[in-house]
Write a protein that binds this DNA or RNA. Sequence first.
DNA 1: GCCC
DNA 2: CAGTACG
DNA 3: GGGCCGTTACTG
Length: 534
Amino acid sequence: SDDAPGCEPYRKMLALHSRALAMASEPKGDVDADDTEDAHALVTSTNHVMDGVCALFVNVAAKRKATLAKLLTRMGGVAVEVDDEQGEVTHVIASDDNIVLAKAMDDLSDDVIKVNLEWITACFKQSSRLSESDYAPRAHVAALPEIPHIDDMSQSVSTTNNAMAPVERKSSQAKRASALMLKGAHGEAIWTSDFVDNEKLEKRREFFVCQPNAYTEKKLVMECNTKVADILAELGEIYKSALRDEYRGKQYNQAANALRALNFEVTSTDQCDSIPMLSKKTSKIRKYVGEILSFGKLKALDEMKQRPDVKACLELTGVHGIGPVTAHKLFLKGYKSVADLRRAPKGTLSEPQSIGLKYVEEFKERIPREEVSVLATAVREAANTFMDDKVHCYCVGSFRRGRSSSGDIDVLVECRDESCMTDLLMHILNDLRPGGKSPRSGILTDDLLVGDVTYMGVARLQRPLDDSDTKPPVHRRMDIKIYHSAQLPTALLYFTGSMRFNRSMRLWAKLKGFNLQDKGLYADREQVEMSRIS
DNA sequence: GCCC
DNA sequence: CAGTACG
DNA sequence: GGGCCGTTACTG
């Protein structure tokens, strides 16, 4: 997924969005800047720039809409939620990259002015009302088919826009908004996903781990370059956990994974050419690969491992709840090891971190499949004592992928009644906590986080699986999540993973014009609720 | 650290 | 709301 | 030189 070349358009789209966000939030910084007099002048000069503007944001993500609306209001304009046909809307504001909208806006009457998001921020920066025509939303439909192909069955899901439209529109407000923006020739709903260039996307299919292809099989069989990869990954881990350089660490890890995925052994740096990120002769990681091939080790890594701060932070981040930043802060306070932390005064660590500390060693142990099964079954049994309703539970994560051991236990609970999801969770917790009268009482030993529909905590078997085992059962990380039936399919998909598979699948969905989340699949990239596919 |  | 941790 | 996964839900 990370290496899929098909991600550029999406990256660009994201870049556009974040730029818009950055610009939108900028004024606050400006006003707070040192030169208050200028800042004041700026505020007054932009005060009336948008007088008389009544804007309707269409198909703009909620967060961005809020930011821009605030900015608009500061400049004297008004943002409305619905076009209530009183003709008060003067401007329709949409993003450049929204294909559907750009298309639908062609059909809009000329008495509203169509502009992109940049217009607002540009006007603010220039302190004047800029020409709307310079900021007309750009449509990128030219290269795409006017009418979606329905010739290929594998793509039909993404191109359906007829009577059997998969789209369920929710609120009346959503309907109203869609009346404005989704004027298809026959009044049908049209979404971003209807305009995807599937032919082009098809060529990239092989690069996605979420798609059936040869790449997946290759990876299962081969185990090459593990030595080089392990060293690079170790360096990556140090950058991420000890040096708080997330992105540098990520590069090392990505390079390590790419080398592991190769189906041949690399014996010279020239063989790195097939890996995009290592293909440049000047690549630093490529040089490191050469050094490892020649000497079997990496000087930079060995030196790094000698550093006391690195040693300390690596050990401290091993505690659940302590990340790179907290580890560094603790190091500066003089804590250099888990043993030091155990001597720390109460209050040094947060409650969840203290629990993480209590079980550091135990949490690092893998959980045998059999034990995952037993503990998850306890959750299912607890859930099924709730209101006589047959509650379905799924043990997800690596267990559901068939792994023989797992790092933690992840249980997904389906609740048919949206109104009692929290009750169900509380019922399960009470059943499993110590001191109760259920046969499962005491399975949960500690809580890390108790939310409305989310639980993160600690569980352990009441007695060893093997009767002859005298050691007490190991404490395990356990998560329980309650999902409403409507959200279950995508929740299952999401929590079954793997993470890499998920990221690939989400990207694939994005490029298809969909938006895949744990709570649902949406036919449009951004406007979430109204394009929900039921 | 690498890509755009 | 920013910072943090997580999968 | 800016951006780098998206989301959830906590803490402060």
